[in-house]
Design a protein around this nucleic acid. Sequence first.
DNA 1: ACACAAACTGAAAAATATTTTCAAAAACAT
DNA 2: ATGTTTTTGAAAATATTTTTCAGTTTGTGT
Lengths: 282, 282
Amino acid sequence: MVEISCVDKIHGKMNRLTKSERKIAQYVLANYEKVLNCNITELAENAKVSDASVVRFCKTMGYKGYQDFKVNAAMDVLPKDRHFNPSLDKNDDTETICKKIFSSEISAMNRTLSILEMDQMEKAAEALRNAGKIVFFGTGGSLLVGKDAQHKFMKIGFCAFVYEDVDMQMMAASLLEEGDVAFGISHSGSNCHVLNCIKAAAENGATTIGLVSQGKTPISKQADISLYAATEKTMFQSESVSTRIVQLAILDSLLSILAFKDYEASYEAIQETRKATSNNKY
Amino acid sequence: MVEISCVDKIHGKMNRLTKSERKIAQYVLANYEKVLNCNITELAENAKVSDASVVRFCKTMGYKGYQDFKVNAAMDVLPKDRHFNPSLDKNDDTETICKKIFSSEISAMNRTLSILEMDQMEKAAEALRNAGKIVFFGTGGSLLVGKDAQHKFMKIGFCAFVYEDVDMQMMAASLLEEGDVAFGISHSGSNCHVLNCIKAAAENGATTIGLVSQGKTPISKQADISLYAATEKTMFQSESVSTRIVQLAILDSLLSILAFKDYEASYEAIQETRKATSNNKY
DNA sequence: ACACAAACTGAAAAATATTTTCAAAAACAT
DNA sequence: ATGTTTTTGAAAATATTTTTCAGTTTGTGT
């Protein structure tokens, strides 16, 4: 079911409208949110037409009547607010910058969820759950995602590994065996260190999982299981600031799936690991 | 302007509602989209109360009347699936778990944005911009946030430092001077290592910034500038999985503010640092 | 347990809002 | 210019929402 937004409907029919219907259309587009607080008479007055014309307008637009129109118009409001151009502008003030950054990241999260392939998530969870060893591979920002994953996996009792040094990563990959999992993370999907590690792991019979942000990439082609993160271009039209966050969200989800497959054990592990760091508290 | 979503309002007031108001609340939450196509009488019938009670319910929720309620309710609709209870349940399937995790994190992002104090952000940005040295402090998960921040700050040409070892962190803190910035990160706001570092830095005249997730905490009390992240409880009602993501979003925003204060320089720095890692590509 | 007060609720009345009807006005074709 | 079609707004008809008010329930103090 493809829902056409109210604004799009109005624009689409604009040139087939009668004179007074067009007055209404223009007023509505120009005062979108204000209209939501108007009753039919107020809207008619503001648009300088009669109540009857407003009703006709609503029906022309395909709604049952004025109320139906208003409810449907309201449903477009938030996305509209969110659809503002998220690219930063030199003149943006602090608040605007923050809103844009948060919006972009939220948008990236939503789009990631919509493209997330559940069968791949399930396969990944199953592989991780039964894994002998789990090793994360990545460099730069993706290394940090790997470290975060390791941290969280440990919290629920999984022994995961991650190495900073690319040589160490390669060595670790070469020591993996059947039943182990190599988890490669790369925004571009074409980081050669990660790719080599994944390849080495695969040669040794380990299951490989790739987490990338772009479509078909060397890493996603090579990996047994592929997960994709959606991104938003913002800063300088450059590599997204949102990548990290979306990748973390995917790993959080994976983690939760795992935790809930072995609820009791995970619960205990969380309690244990929390106790272990609790004397850090002031 | 803090916009509270209609669903949140209902949840928030749920236990202060009268019996028939609660009936309505429950019906509305359970049949959210359906309600938008109901007039007041239909809703009253479905919820098994009188029309009058529905009006009272709308007013209790802070709306002018039924129409106002419906329009505002409609405004929440498109971010679909945001309305279900985000706590995970043993019987949730993979897709549901993913949706819940993403929703919780998005919700945490939204709430963080709404509580973010812009004057603190500006002060933080100004301090960082003029800083001689910038050092991030944190342990466990927060250390990773610090590392991520360091990584991103370097990308736009800022020299930031972060140390894994708590002794090193303490040493670094003791070497800070006036004009430097100590940036402490701690979910609980009471990590003693971070607190000690912040204190030491302050004693030496450095500006201190605290990024925490809970209200007034030892760290936020000590720090010159405090930033707060909202969180969502999900997994095992335990420490939130969303913390990391929200903290990153705050740092992304801070980074963007900085980048846009010195647009040209940042742009160049990004190009330079990107070139530096580009031969990693396959 | 009982009496009283306060709060809550629904039926019906009152107030509003929406939709339809219909005749006049405008636009259009011939 | 004239007749036809379409569009329009005023007013009537209908539907919806809100308020009022009296009966009922709930809670409190004795």
